[in-house]
Design a protein around this nucleic acid. Structure first.
Lengths: 203, 203
DNA sequence: CCTACCGATCGGTAGG
DNA sequence: CCTACCGATCGGTAGG
């Protein structure tokens, strides 16, 4: 078993075993973080749930911060697969925006993740804690907002920045209200709000 | 709103010393929780910042959970004073809704609290953790949403529940985006969204 | 309101 | 990937 020559042990492996283990760790880490945050994601808890030793798990990342950053990266990939890629079949502009909102809301409504939206949970947790973890979360959200703004511009919106903000607010608001109230009616409210946003005259 | 009497040591004191100490503790607790959450609010940290012993502080609440519940209660009171009461001069309905939104956004924009909106931070933190703390946060938010809905009904909104959801989403979205981007333009976006919401024909 | 202490858990290290 | 350990901090208690 040759060690990879990465600075972070395990992080650069291409062999199937190390990659599989790392992937299994991150899948579990995403679930924990969406419920209990990136602080609640402790190495001891993660190791115990995966029936590994703490130090064995630790060796994959080298520090808790690197584990957190890897988890944020995995969340971005999962978001891309679940929300962005399914919408790529829709044409740019209004249809694409409609498809992205629909994919996101369906995603939440399906209760696929025990803690709801990873980004809602972790951005609220880290928005006031300076450092690389906050920066990575902020960059992922800026990238999403940027895509909404770009599509709004293509759609001829008079205020693409404002449009992106409102669409973000509505879908995040739906996550937030659903987590607390468990009332599925919020998804109907959110879909209605998105419909009206998309129907707005561009003047 | 009288304090409960006495099962919790220190909680029912009316003498000025105990009340002042408790009030000072909760003021500091609110600030910590808005930045680092109700888990980041540790007894040791709070005691050290207030130059008290851990056990001296602990005696005021009896458990960490009681400290958290007292902090949630103090946040509700502060919210009422900063957002609800200033709007009571405006007539019921649209003017009241406009005043509440304005007070909340001005409040956030003023950077009075180091961690932004206490409710945004703690509801995201506790929405998936069953227990009395989650219940208290959910009740406070339900109460606020209920007031928005009530005012929307008075204003003749065709969908008061939907209206309350959208107004909530916009103001919470402004907090969330401002915490991460530090771009004050989000407040202009939010005010514009509120104006359009309030101008909507009731048909 | 204090000192002194408890067992559990934290992130992390030594050495294999 | 493991056992065995480290100092720091957690919530909480005893006793005053």
């Amino acid at each position: 078993m040759a060690e990879a020559s990465a600075t972070i042990p395990g992080a650069g492996q291409v062999g199937s075993k190390g990659t599989d283990t790392r992937s299994a760790i991150l899948t579990r880490a995403l679930d924990i973080a969406s419920v209990d945050g990136l602080e609640g994601l402790t190495i001891g808890r993660l190791a115990s749930e995966l029936k590994m030793s703490k130090s064995g798990l630790f060796a994959h990342f080298g520090s808790k911060q690197e584990l957190q950053l890897a988890t944020v990266g995995a969340a971005a990939e999962r978001f891309r697969i679940a929300v962005i890629e399914p919408a790529l079949g829709a044409p740019d502009g209004v249809p694409r925006l409609r498809a992205i909102a629909a994919a996101y809301l369906t995603h939440l409504e399906g209760n696929e993740y025990s803690g709801g939206c990873f980004w809602a949970a972790t951005s609220a947790e880290y928005d006031d804690r300076p450092g690389p973890v906050r920066d990575a979360i902020a960059a992922a959200l800026d990238s999403w907002l940027g895509e909404l703004e770009r599509q709004a511009r293509i759609a001829g919106s008079p205020g693409p920045g404002r449009f992106a903000f409102e669409m973000y607010a509505v879908v995040m608001g739906a996550n937030s209200r659903y987590r607390l109230s468990k009332d599925p009616e919020v998804f109907a409210y959110a879909r209605d709000a998105i419909d009206r946003l998309l129907a707005e005259p561009p003047g």
